[in-house]
Design a protein around this nucleic acid. Structure first.
Lengths: 150, 150
DNA sequence: ACTAGTCGTTGAGAAAGTCAATGATTGAGA
DNA sequence: TCTCAATCATTGACTTTCTCAACGACTAGT
């Protein structure tokens, strides 16, 4: 009998526990995302910051709120992206305490490639899902992900 | 002038990224689970170990495989549960290297209460889901969570 | 002008994940 | 039977991530 490395069944309770399944699915997709991004020197975390820099251009505080990270984590993430020349800290004309994070042209270009890589990895993981199913899954997840915002 | 703490929209790309939504949903449910378990001195991690001890009674190696944790993490988790009197390390009659992890009566009783608490937290998070939707969600997640097995 | 609050930043500490090494034990092959 | 590679639980080191408190600079309300 082959020694199955990661058995299909964990335990009756856990296999029906949405929280457990969510954690495992999330770990799996995050790992796949990191793998897809590694050649560009990105991880899913820095990718999400870059996405906001490209698509929103928020302050660091807003970045922390949107990504639900601690402001101190944003500092390190922006530091790394800035060192790579992908984002800039711009002074906010309306508030001299704040720094607006915007993508450079190189950052926008990197984001385009990164997004393609992430999408590819995601398509692989969702290979068995029909378009309709994938949409339904995302809709479900959105309802959960924002269920704490009344 | 409500300071919106966690905006409903993150960024166009991320709001459609299953990996990102999965991470956020997972973080949210894990936090809710930990909150529900905290009064019993458990976290979702130790809860999952306890579940296996009650329902399976595996060796530590098997525990690591099923939960996809490093064997060294299992040591600490079992140490804590054993210190509380909830599980035992039994010698495996067939292999003197291995230790079989089984729940004590107190462990089984704790698990019953813990499971009820976790289920309650989960019902709260999935409050807006119909039974059919919740089942569909779990089925989706199971397909992703085990998509790396062949 | 005073004061309370916010922004970005630093630094410390806890928690979790990863990896290599070890003693005891197993199982397979010479 | 003896040998030897592999496995099990464990320890310890190291990295990463999270969480918090504090601080200087700055803002806004009184």
């Amino acid at each position: 009998m082959g020694t199955d490395n990661a058995p299909m069944d964990v335990s009756p309770t856990l296999d029906a526990d949405a929280s457990f399944l969510l954690a495992r699915a999330s770990a799996l997709t995050a790992a796949a995302g990191n793998r897809a991004l590694s050649s560009m020197g990105l991880k899913v975390r820095s990718y999400s910051v870059l996405a906001l820099a490209v698509e929103v251009g928020p302050s660091q505080r807003e970045l922390a709120e949107r990504l639900r990270l601690d402001p101190s984590q944003i500092v390190a993430l922006v530091d790394a992206l800035e060192a790579g020349g992908y984002v800039e800290r711009r002074p906010d004309p309306a508030d001299r305490r704040a720094r607006t994070i915007t993508a450079t042209p190189a950052g926008a270009e990197l984001f385009a490639r990164a997004r393609a890589a992430v999408d590819g990895a995601q398509r692989e993981i969702l290979a068995s899902f029909s378009t309709h199913e994938a949409d339904a899954l995302r809709a479900f997840l959105r309802r959960i992900a924002y269920s704490d915002l009344r």
